[in-house]
Nucleic acid binder design. Structure first.
Lengths: 217, 217
DNA sequence: CCAAAAGTGTTTTTGCTACACCCATGG
DNA sequence: CCATGGGTGTAGCAAAAACACTTTTGG
């Protein structure tokens, strides 16, 4: 009995310098030498798909502190020209700014790309990213996923800009603050961010570290 | 290199006699002889997951005219006691009332069950059904999935009862009609349903056969 | 005192909810 | 003329959207 081989590809993302960014690796193996791709690898026989995603990211970047969730199965027959491989795509959020980049046998480079300046990519990885972008807009609106993108403490303006970057539109400052405070997913730490010229901003933190489903906007 | 074996299990559903029903098959093979289960089988190497779902349903019930979509991957390590099998769960809508039931080597029986009177089930199929029920509530509210459950022509009251069954709550008749007519997903055929004692009801039809995302309720 | 971002309320508009009666038909 | 479900409108309320000025700080 023959079955497709199972793999996973992971969309690791973050917001850096006011841009939504994705982590890509540069392949140095056939069949797509020199093309960029999502980090991905095979799933072992006795391994959970989620664990496989964690393992792959750890191997690619030594990062293990992240939130991962399943996205969708990508299974076009010819998505991999060499073999019949079905991929379970995941999305992962990295908080830390510093990720120690590694390269190994299969990767010659690893880097962050803005979603509106993506390079030519291997396999169907562009499809995966497009699918994830749609899902992301929805998730940011209806869950506390946005908070997973923030550092431990953050200002309301910083949080608002995350929404604006993901949703690609401006939001009203007063309405935004009202809704977020009313939804009880963040709390005032009492501290102020006092490292700038303008008036110090209150620092907030997420009340719950886990992802919750809440209608935020 | 070892990879899990890929399979798919399909939640085939419908509304019959004012109940939300799922199609289950009775296994006559190890490891769950005499238990009920979702129709499911392995995915062949050169086959799309969606095609596999269609094939399985055709083999189980000779039905091919249905809408199928991917649900989620179920991959608990011990979900199958005999082998490492990862299942890509799908949901499928059958419209026709008459499905010619078949049994074969692996199935000794096939039948519809109400979702609130489910039998003891094999594998993690109860988890799959529970997950699907959550998703279904959402899909009915935010897409035209409900229309796929209707025959070619239907009355507004019939459509309303589909919502009420899936959402497990009563809806206001006037508000329901206003919202549905305002969302431009159905149109009046001009015909009337004249087979009863009460006043004849207008028959509507779906404007678009494909699934659309619309906020209906 | 100037630049820069923080912070704050009210009004208007919109959409949702709740609610009760008359209508058309077949027997 | 009766039983049965079909069909219709409005008023009140709550949430969303629109909108502009004052405050705090460092230089």
């Amino acid at each position: 009995m023959e079955s497709p081989i199972l793999a996973t590809d992971v969309v690791v993302f973050n917001i850096r310098k006011w841009k939504l960014k994705v982590l890509l690796i540069k392949m140095n193996k056939e069949p797509f030498v020199w093309l960029w791709a999502l980090p991905g690898w095979f799933i072992w026989e006795k391994e959970l798909c989620l664990d496989a995603a964690h393992r792959i990211l750890y191997e690619a970047s030594s990062v293990s502190d992240l939130y991962i969730e399943q996205l969708k199965v990508f299974d076009a027959i010819d998505r991999d020209p060499k073999a019949r491989i079905v991929s379970i795509a995941h999305m992962a959020i990295i908080k830390k700014d510093d990720l120690s980049i590694k390269t190994n046998d299969s990767y010659s480079d690893i880097a962050w790309f803005s979603v509106d300046e993506l390079p030519v990519m291997a396999y169907d990885h562009l499809d995966i990213i497009k699918y994830w972008l749609e899902r992301l807009e929805w998730k940011v609106t209806y869950s506390t996923l946005s908070l997973s993108l923030m550092p431990e403490k953050f200002t309301l303006s910083e949080l608002q800009s995350v929404f604006e970057i993901v949703l690609k539109k401006d939001l009203d400052k007063r309405n935004f603050r009202k809704k977020l405070l009313k939804s009880w997913v963040i709390e005032d730490t009492g501290e102020k961010k006092t490292i700038g010229i303008p008036r110090p901003a209150s620092l907030f933190r997420a009340i719950n570290k886990d992802l919750e489903f809440v209608d935020l906007l």
